[in-house]
């Protein structure tokens, strides 16, 4: 019975609760955090765009370099192959004549 009364009192203990006082500088704190976040965003975004642009430029340059190089290598290889082929075919023709 005593416990029941006490439980009732516990359940009613919030009936006359007062509001707790929020920090009077909450607005200032929120603004500091907002400015901090915005500053971080501002400093991160251009670097990312910069990095992306740099990567893209390097990729393009590499592509052009590889493309022009394979072209010239292909040409010199073909030039080197021609005398060898001529010699080979003339050898075959000579052996067939025998």
């Amino acid at each position: 019975m005593e416990n029941k009364n006490e439980i009732e009192k516990i359940l009613a203990s919030l009936d006359s609760i007062q509001k707790a006082e929020a920090n009077p500088f909450l607005y200032e704190k929120v603004m500091i955090r907002l400015e901090g976040k915005e500053a971080r965003v501002v400093s991160i975004v251009p670097i990312k765009i910069w990095q992306a642009a740099a990567c893209f430029a390097v990729l393009i340059a590499l592509n052009i370099f590889v493309w022009t190089r394979t072209d010239s290598v292909g040409k010199t290889q073909n030039e080197n192959k021609n005398p060898l082929a001529q010699e080979y075919f003339s050898y075959i023709n000579n052996t067939i004549q025998f």
Partner: peptide, 19 residues
């Protein structure tokens, strides 16, 4: 212990909040 609870109810409110 909620700061807005009256002094005589502090212990009861503590028990209630944990429940």
């Amino acid at each position: 212990v909620h700061p807005g609870v009256q002094l005589e109810n502090k212990e009861r409110a503590r028990i209630l909040f944990s429940a």
